[in-house]
Amino acid sequence: MEDKRKYKFSWDLIGDIQLGRPNLGNTTRVEVYRLLQFTFRDIIELNVGKEQTDRIFYDAGKLAGQEFYKHMLKPTSDINEFISQLQAALRELGIGILRVEQVDMDLGELTLTVAEDLDCSGLPEGEEEICTYDEGFICALIESFTGIPFTVKEVDCWCTGDRTCRFEAHSVSYNATENEEQ
C-alpha cells in the first residue's frame, strides 16, 4: 500500500494558480471551502466512524500547518514575531482573526482564539466542537516554531454556541515532567 501512494502531499500540488486561473484568480467563496470540507467529513465518517474522522482531520490539519509554516511564514526565533506573522497571514488569507489571550512559553501554554473562523463561524449550533482540522493546523504551527511536541484542544467553538473558537495549546514535554513530579 505505502509504495503506491498516489497523492503524497507537496506544496507543488497546489499548482500554478496564476497560470491555471488567469481570469478567476486566486479567490473562491467560503461556501465552496465548507462544501468540500463537510462533504469529505460526511463520507469519511460514514466509512470510518466519528472518532476516526476527527483523527483524520486533525492529522490533515497538522500536515497543512507544517506546510503552511514552511511556505507562508518567515523563520524567526521570537515568539511575538511569530505570532504577529501568523496573525497577519491568517487575516490576509481570510482564514480567521487570530487573537492571543495568553502566552507563557516557560510553562508551554498558549491560549488563542480565532474569530470569523473559515471552518465554523456561522455554522448551526450543535453539541460538539467541530474545528479538529484547525486544532491540527495550530498544533503544527506551534510545534514547527518551538520544535517540541504540543497538543491543541478547542475548548470553545462557534458550533457549541460560543461565537468564537478558543484553542488551548500545551507542551507535551512540560505536561510529562509535571506528571512525573506529581
Partner: peptide
C-alpha cells in the same frame, strides 16, 4: 453553558483577554 448570549459573553471575555495580552506586549515594547 452555551448558546448565543453565553457565546457573546465568551467573545467579550476573549476580547478583554486579548487586550490584556496586547497591553502587556506594548509594555514590553512591541
Amino acid at each position: 453553558g452555551s448558546g448565543h448570549t453565553i457565546g457573546v459573553i465568551k467573545n467579550l471575555q476573549a476580547t478583554l483577554k486579548t487586550l490584556t495580552w496586547q497591553t502587556k506586549r506594548i509594555a514590553e515594547g512591541d
